[in-house]
Amino acid sequence: MRTLLLLASALLALPLHAAQLTLDLANGARTWSTEQLLTHPQARDIDIPDDVSYKRPMHYRAVPVAALLEGVASDAHLQAVATDGFAAEIPAGPLLQKTGSQAWLAVEDPAHPWPGLSKDKPSAGPFYLVWTDPAASGISPEQWPYAVGKIRLLASVAERFPALLPDPGIAATDPVNQGFALFQKNCFACHRLNGAGDSQLGPDLNIPHNPTEYFAGDYLKLYIRNPQALRQWPQAKMPAITPQVLSDEELDQVVKYLKHMAGRKVTP
């Protein structure tokens, strides 16, 4: 009975809605609790002037991501997995930087929860990867994953998912290959292609039909620029991809990659 009472007291002492973050790296898996991260020796208060998810200035208690990636090399590849199935593929190099664009793991304090992302929606917590000076390294909105539950070390996208690869005979400088690189950075966090990918959020972009097969003319580009302008529904999740995220030239390259892959379908 005494043991049960002690256990109950310990559970009551835990912060309300405390969460856990799993880091699965080369030296094994480690779990960090909300309390451990809030009291991390390198935790500090930061201000984000133009938060990608909240669309306004935000203030956070955060830990430099580099401080959590012990033993990770700058040429490694990481994936941040959110609780809603969003899976952001991020090269380790930018995450390890200590100048210019710097990555931070914002930690939601249960005693002072963040606001909801919009009406009737939860906050970006319990863990949210944010950036100071994101423009310095061209950090895209897809590299701001929120509701993060796990960060893991993986092989590159090309190694894990060969079904995504363009024809190997195409030059590395070809717009199709440039589009493939942009696809990984800006689209792959939500979408699969040829059944390949880890995201559970958006539809496959090649199976059964590639969007270049059913969007006539420039409608695919218009849809990417502003999805709600072509297909409007309340629960839509795809954001508008502005020219600040993908220039017109880059958007052309992504579409060229998709059109190329329409001829390289692989049944899952």
Results as ranks from 00 to 15, higher is better:
L5V: 10
L6D: 11
S9C: 15
L16I: 14
Q20S: 14
L23K: 12
D24Y: 15
A26K: 14
A26M: 12
T31E: 08
T34S: 15
E35L: 15
Q36A: 13
T39Q: 13
P49E: 06
D50W: 12
P57T: 07
H59W: 06
R61L: 06
V63M: 05
P64S: 06
A67H: 04
L78P: 01
L78G: 02
A80Q: 02
T83G: 07
F86Y: 11
A87N: 11
E89D: 13
G93A: 15
P94N: 13
T99H: 14
G100P: 07
W104C: 12
L105W: 03
H112T: 09
H112M: 10
H112F: 12
G125S: 07
P126R: 02
F127N: 03
Y128K: 04
Y128F: 08
W131D: 04
S140T: 08
S140M: 14
I151G: 01
L153A: 07
F161Y: 07
P162F: 03
L164W: 00
P166S: 11
D167T: 08
G169P: 07
I170N: 05
D174A: 12
N177F: 08
Q178L: 15
F180E: 01
F183I: 01
K185H: 06
K185A: 05
C187P: 01
C187R: 01
G197L: 00
D198P: 01
D204A: 00
I207R: 00
N210I: 00
W233V: 11
K259I: 09
K265Y: 02
